[in-house]
């Protein structure tokens, strides 16, 4: 058990992948912008350096709460990672783990809001408000979009959804719109450009994380990176059938390729768009995306899941 928690698919594995993903992401964005980009050890160096920095908190905040928030966020992301099959290898699974994973993945957003609310700064409170507003705009389409493959494969077990698809057809070919919605939701969840509204630098400095520093900030960043990895794997497993084919090596390669593809798409989205305004996002979310995701559910039900 401790091997599972600490090494695979637990902390060690996800930590390495998070660092790697951050490097690829930063490097890709840099290249799209005509820059060289950071060397491969840069994310690790940043992390270690942040760990060594002085940890300051504003007077009057609940110090225990402030210390607990990033840790809970990290724990939620790591726990979600335990139930995600990687390259066809499923370590833990049970019926309904998709719902648990989705819940665990939405926890960091709520904790993010709480972080803003409990640190007293004005930028943090504004950022926390925005985080919550953004949460309501992307979370519903994200949940509905990910329930698409589940209904399609009559299972709420991620491993089952994945294995089912390897014998029938990848969900993305049936539900391309659903994938788009899930992808959009993932951007919102990770608070990346163009949906980095809660931490919009030129408006509210760093949003909820303005008052965090040192170790706590490092853990927030790590949690966000691990959330990125877990989110990408979740999309690959549910919409691409986890890339499972007969040979283990081919599965591994296909899985890596698909995950990389989604990661690079995230980088492209970051480089391609200006930040949206919160009211524009809310309008987009409630007027376009949620009706679309409901339509998609209706479409699956109309198909009678007789696939």
């Amino acid at each position: 058990m401790s091997f599972k928690v600490l090494v695979f698919p637990g902390f060690g594995f996800l930590f390495c992948l998070a660092m790697l993903a951050e490097w690829i992401d930063r490097r890709m964005i840099a290249r799209f912008q005509g820059r060289v980009g950071p060397p491969v050890f840069q994310p690790l160096a940043d992390f270690i350096k942040l760990l060594g920095k002085e940890d300051l908190l504003p007077t009057g905040v609940n110090e225990k709460l402030m210390a607990a928030l990033p840790l809970i966020s990290l724990a939620a992301c790591l726990t979600a990672g335990m139930y995600i099959p990687v390259a066809g290898v499923s370590v833990n699974n049970f019926e309904g783990d998709l719902i648990v994973v989705l819940f665990l993945l939405s926890l960091p957003s709520l904790l993010y809001f709480l972080a803003g609310w409990s640190s007293i700064g004005i930028y943090s409170i504004l950022g926390g408000n925005r985080a919550l507003l953004q949460f309501f705009s992307y979370e519903v389409p994200f949940l509905l979009a990910l329930s698409g493959p589940a209904i399609l494969n009559s299972s709420w077990n991620i491993t089952d959804i994945m294995v089912n698809q390897s014998t029938s057809i990848w969900a993305i070919f049936v539900l391309p719109v659903g994938f788009m919605l899930a992808f959009f939701g993932l951007i919102g969840k990770l608070k990346r450009d163009p949906l980095d509204i809660p931490k919009a630098q030129s408006e509210i400095v760093a949003g909820p994380l303005t008052e965090f520093s040192g170790r706590k900030l490092a853990i927030w960043h790590l949690a966000n990176q691990i959330q990125t990895v877990v989110g990408i794997f979740l999309l690959v497993d549910t919409y691409f059938g986890g890339g499972v084919i007969e040979s283990r090596l081919a599965t591994f390669l296909l899985f890596s390729f698909l995950a990389l593809l989604i990661l690079v798409s995230l980088s492209v989205m970051s480089a391609m768009y200006a930040r949206l305004r919160i009211d524009q996002l809310a309008r987009l979310g409630w007027k376009r995306l949620i009706p679309l995701s409901l339509l998609q559910i209706a479409f699956i039900v109309w198909m009678g899941k007789g696939f």
Binding site: A30, R31, F32, V36
Partner: peptide, 20 residues
């Protein structure tokens, strides 16, 4: 909505302009 995509790709192929 995807106006910048081709430009991004062109810059990516062109390689970085900054130096070390």
């Amino acid at each position: 909505r995807i106006f910048l995509l081709s430009k991004l790709w062109a810059v990516f192929l062109e390689g970085p302009t900054t130096g070390g």
